[in-house]
Design a protein around this nucleic acid. Sequence first.
DNA 1: GTCACAATCACCCATCCGGGTGACGACGCG
DNA 2: CGCGTCGTCACCCGGATGGGTGATTGTGAC
Lengths: 164, 164
Amino acid sequence: MISPVTDPAAIRGLWRPVLFYAAALALGAFALEWLQYRFWARMIPLEIMIGLIGAAFAALGVWVGMRLTRRAPPAPFVRNEAALKSLAITPRELDVLEALVSGDSNKELARTLGVSPNTVKTHIARLFDKLGVTSRIQAIETGRDLRLIPAAGDTPTPTTRSDG
Amino acid sequence: MISPVTDPAAIRGLWRPVLFYAAALALGAFALEWLQYRFWARMIPLEIMIGLIGAAFAALGVWVGMRLTRRAPPAPFVRNEAALKSLAITPRELDVLEALVSGDSNKELARTLGVSPNTVKTHIARLFDKLGVTSRIQAIETGRDLRLIPAAGDTPTPTTRSDG
DNA sequence: GTCACAATCACCCATCCGGGTGACGACGCG
DNA sequence: CGCGTCGTCACCCGGATGGGTGATTGTGAC
């Protein structure tokens, strides 16, 4: 039913930092080798030199490794348009559903949405029917389960809807 | 008011893997140095040797770095006991708050909790006062924000409470 | 024992909610 | 044009909800 998005652009984008870090590694290798060979080779014992190089590369590697794995915690919330269509939920009803999570009364929802309280009631009643629920709380819960509205952990919502 | 939990045990626990990886790094350093100095020093040019050591340490560092940052995707939901205490929310009130997310009416909540509807109303009223809200939906939202009750993405809840 | 508090239940009352029905203008489609 | 859909608004009504106040019991602390 609901297939997770596997964006090819996102996967391709992963290789940019990898190449960058590889280049940085190669550059560091050459720089270090040149430095040790030209200047410090006669001033520092070879064992110390090896240790320093190892430590430097290990540190660089740690940095690269942390860089590579630290990503993708945000999880940007993509709305389930398929569910919206299959449930025949209209854009205005989605507005009302999003406004419902504030916990306001119909009167306040009406003010924030710029319509009459009766209209809010009608939209909510239709939502209940389409979502198969009987209370605002259940509407919010199922709306979140179906990814119609963002949950608390998701990013705040790019925009209410894609209308201008 | 509500301070995030800074568990000293959790912080101490972080140093165990760090020390382990540091020891592994040191061991690798000594091993590599010994190897190169004893056997390969006369067979391989020094530049190649340095490059090999650098690559090896970089790889080791990458592994360590990925090891250090790869963690915590599951997020097991730990209840914010500090908030519970500072808000003076009693265990029974927490039961009611958890039951609220079902979206049931007071009558059904009373049946599931095994008490009278009047008692449910009293608990809910006290919750509203302590959470500073005026509707069940707001109570659920702030309860989740304060980590008093699990959100949809969290693990289902180890147990309702720690009572038998 | 006294005190505080959690938990339970009761009652009153104004308001809100959920459920149902009806209606009207705007818009797009055939 | 006729038709369906969307958005808007109105009305009614029974039950639920939110906001108070008061009371009782058990439990634990002092």
